[in-house]
Design a binder for these strands. Structure first.
Lengths: 230, 230
DNA sequence: ATCATAAAATTTGTATTACAAGCTACTATT
DNA sequence: AATAGTAGCTTGTAATACAAATTTTATGAT
């Protein structure tokens, strides 16, 4: 089932290694595609696909007719992204630590900047959360995600939005992997709901500091529950 | 000087947008390269280059003969599709806002967890910063980056490290694009150096709260300077 | 000799055709 | 009906060609 690595992928990694190793220092010009093709003993196609990856990652830039150049500050982020192997309980703690840092600040910003529409979105999500809370069948997880997501959106900061989106996705995936089919989350649901209401009302009242504190409290309690499950 | 976007880059963005929009839900199979080529009215080459970017970003996987499929967890790439267009001076403010949130917390964690080696790394970076500060030629930017980076490393949190790495890369690139060269950053260098020393000494003394405060002060002052340049 | 301009040579971007390697689905044989 | 085999897609790579943009060289004027 393993994905065999293709020539273009191998070349992409190889070129990146060369760049990181200083073989092509920042600002320098790469050999032409023809030269690279000759050097690796392949056609231009795998070379171009490898270069397009490095280009998308911000490692190089290319100008038609001009050649490809190594960026001054090569952000190699694309290639070594965080992968969650099997049950790594440590990673969950690290992910949660980032949530504890980011979410209270997001609540703070949301209290400052939320539009009426975004406020309504939070109210709707909370309402659904209340309904599902009483339903033994539903987990309410989706509404929960939506509530938190609407707060993030209200920060109006695209970087925050992007970071939290990725962080949440990683967190949920990590939880799903490590926590087997699960366990009653019910006993804390009522309490969590109240915490959510507190956050929302702080945002409604446009009280950023309070929103930050309420969010921090919520996360602190969630962490307690989490530590029991690990 | 403006980098004209190529067909393959446009298609890469377009496909990503379609995937994010749910046109191709997670787990689903993409049309074949021939079909995509016909749909976009281009040859296979730009299609393949676009797909290779999405593949490298972890958005899709491809098997020879089998086709390309949307990954289940398509959001694992941290921050990638944030494009810095030139007229976005706003993005710098958003990026800086995230720095103000993350860096003081990183300093806090670093004060708790730094190893002796990491402490030494910070001292070395600071020393180089002091030397370059007196040299009119050097900008000291590299040492500055190294100092901050070593603090991030000391948090021992891989998620934090990854996020800050991406954030810094974006920030530097954005600065370089919007702020044309030049501009003397010198007048604040002495003051900034002192702030750096304060952060380091708090981390040395293992006083997390103090480290957080010192980092926040440093960023607050840096923000003042930044707002003058925008 | 120097500088401006035009032509030539490179180099990236895309198209076309071709084929190998691997996967899918259908068919035929039992 | 189950299984093996085959035909047909689909991705991966090659080779060639040409357009578009850039860099280098050559040319010409002053």
């Amino acid at each position: 089932m393993r994905n065999k690595t293709t020539v273009s992928q191998a070349i992409s990694r190889e070129l990146l290694k060369m760049i990181e190793h200083g073989k092509f220092p920042p600002g320098s010009k790469l050999p032409s595609e023809m030269e690279l093709a000759a050097h690796f003993g392949v056609s231009r196609i795998p070379i171009r696909e490898a270069l397009s990856v490095l280009r998308a990652a911000g490692v190089i830039t290319s100008r038609q007719g001009g050649g490809s150049y190594v960026e001054e500050n090569a952000a190699t982020s694309l290639l070594h992204h965080i992968r969650i192997e099997q049950d790594d309980a440590d990673i969950i703690k690290h992910l949660f630590e980032m949530r504890k840092i980011l979410e209270p600040e997001a609540a703070y910003l949301a209290a400052l900047r939320r539009t009426p529409e975004q406020l309504q979105q939070m109210r709707n999500a909370l309402k659904r959360l209340e309904i599902e809370c009483n339903d033994e069948e539903k987990t309410g997880q989706k509404a929960d995600i939506e509530f938190h997501s609407s707060i993030i959106q209200a920060t109006q900061n695209p970087i925050m939005i992007q970071m939290m989106e990725n962080l949440s996705a990683l967190y949920e995936r990590a939880l799903k992997i490590t926590l087997k089919p699960n366990l009653k989350l019910k006993q804390r649901r009522k309490a969590a709901l109240k915490e959510h209401r507190n956050i929302l009302s702080a945002i409604e009242m446009e009280e950023p500091e309070l929103a930050r504190i309420q969010s921090a409290i919520h996360l602190k309690n969630a962490e307690k529950k989490l530590s029991l499950l690990l």
